[in-house]
Design a protein around this nucleic acid. Structure first.
Lengths: 203, 203, 203, 203
DNA sequence: AATGAATGAGTCTTCATTCAT
DNA sequence: GATGAATGAAGACTCATTCAT
């Protein structure tokens, strides 16, 4: 009202932003199932009907919220070889990144798990990510095996799946369910178990 | 029908059994959220109202179904020292038991995960089990450390949590989401990773 | 079991008594609408089905309970001319009787009011009683008018209705709704108002 | 239909009015307990769900209906001193107002009695009104006593309660239960009894 | 006569989605 | 684009009553 009326496009974009932010707050507060469209609209300061101007469904809004968090919560990026050659240092750095991102977005990460169990589309989305991460780490594992730095008897892909699962499960346990394990201790344990599991020689 | 319905008490017990079996079928087919009381009753061959003679809610019926499966799906029971002294053989046997039980009840295990994300009571139930399993395996790990058979630098409890998480996640991935990893390969990988992670000397 | 089995007739009568007593407790505790047949049976120490051996419906059970209280709660019995000739003393005695009976059975009296508003049959029952009481007191009023002791301008029947209504309403207000008026004060006020209203000369 | 449904707010107000009117018709026709939300909505020409846009419960709708009738059914307003000084004329006028209002809304008055016996909130509402009326009339009675126009031996508040109860009970008997007493006769009797009961000197 | 499990009709209530303005 | 009231399908739950033993 006071602000000079913006162009429709700008108004629309602003409303959409408000809805994504509002949806995130409501999802984090109430969970996916309990979140009501009317509440998301109210929390975003818009009318109920306006929700449907921007999203087709609650799922679509959730997808938009998830998109915001997606990139920064990619699983351990072992392929980003930091300048060092010490594989254990690399593993540790990757885990640190992952755990920090998970902790920052713990509520939404938990929510994604929840929705993946409920909604077919999100289940596929999550599985795709799981596969992406596994393939990525499998490549790293294979490389380490080739260099003679990792147990050659391990199947790279299965191993990647298993170790990724271990890490994400622990992040969930600590940051979502509040298991009382300190961040440093958690990082040390996961790094040690990764290194041990692959039989990477101590540095 | 054929058998005369002896005393009311016996009739009641029979109906309850029918309801638990029917509920299991409906839960496995439709999931927890989609399962309707009326369907459970119909599937069990009783009237809708009879459901409430035996259960207070859908949750109560689900708990009864879960109880049926619970015992046989305990996580790796490493403390059950099989006649052998070879720790790796023990680990493998425990994992085989667990994976077989998980595969047998895959749908329900997945369902329990789902419901634990939705219902506070089941979340607690599941967390309790997670803690029980972790404490149990932590004891085993500590014993191996004391014997000089496992990496003494690892925190037993965190390690137990992490490795249990790895195993259950893999079981979920393979038996629920259909990841194409053969049973033997899965067992071999998990056993090797467990042994490696703890730095148990090769047999 | 321990007691020698009585004849069927005696057993039946006993169960019925237990049910009437149990029904009264449940009605007083839960009200008519909230009272459930199953609760009445449980409170009476019999099986649900046995209720229907003795009563056709909740209404029938309520009628049985009411019967127990009915006689002693008849409205002011002014025609019972006590040995005295002082009409005010007679009025006072009648009111005392009525108020004491009402107080003793306050919960059930309130309940009867409730049920009369809900159930056609009890409405008629209550109206019949109202008419009976009014005709009875109208006769007394007419007698007093004939003796020159009461305002001859009053219509006896309407007056009887009005004054009876006043008394029962006050009893309800004090004994059911807990209006803080002492028994003696209540009795004195009602007696004075009756006497005044009829213009009975002061004794 | 004919009028374009201007803004949403106006539409909302219109629907609410329709619901209150529809609810009144259904309550009067079916009573409170028998009235179904679906019927109220249908009678109001809106969808079932629309009922809940405006009311939380059947009780809330009933309260809205009662509000409509409340003001005009206040008990005898003796304090409204009409231009005359004749107290009996004032009493008669007040009773006439009350009886006319009661007759106009007889069904709802009866309903309020019913609901007050069923619902705690309405019980309190009704008791509050009873107390308000009693205090109001007690003041009038006290004033008459002070002027030497009323029996000084009467407790004003108890007396007010008793006489108010008498009047409302008679209104109920005649206008709700159909007791065959003519309006003028009823008014005359109640006025005479009030005046007599207080020992107001004849005009 | 007693038992108590089985029956199933009957309503309230929620909330995603639509649509007239 | 925004508004927010209207829609109505869907399902959980209760409980009086029945009936086989």
């Amino acid at each position: 009202m006071s602000t000079a009326a913006s162009t429709p496009r700008v108004r629309g974009a602003r409303t959409r932003e408000a809805l994504v932010a509002g949806a995130r707050r409501v999802f984090e507060r109430d969970g996916f199932l309990e979140a009501r469209i009317a509440d998301i609209a109210a929390e975003s300061g818009v009318a109920t009907g306006s929700f449907y101007t921007h999203f087709d469904s609650k799922e679509a809004a959730f997808a938009a919220v998830i998109d915001e968090v997606h990139e920064e919560t990619l699983h351990p990026r072992l392929e980003v070889t930091h300048s060092t050659d010490d594989p254990i240092a690399v593993i540790e750095a990757a885990h640190r990144d992952y755990l920090l991102a998970y902790r920052r977005n713990a509520k939404l990460m938990a929510l994604l798990e929840q929705v993946a169990l409920i909604d077919e589309d999100f289940r596929r989305l999550r599985l795709d990510r799981v596969h992406l991460m596994a393939r990525r780490n499998a490549k790293t594992i294979r490389r380490l095996q080739d260099k003679g730095l990792a147990d050659p008897g391990l199947d790279p892909l299965s191993t990647a799946h298993a170790l990724n699962g271990m890490v994400s499960r622990m992040a969930n346990l600590v940051f979502v369910h509040g298991e009382r394990i300190g961040f440093d201790s958690l990082l040390a344990t996961l790094t040690a178990l990764w290194a041990n599991a692959l039989r990477i020689p101590a540095r």
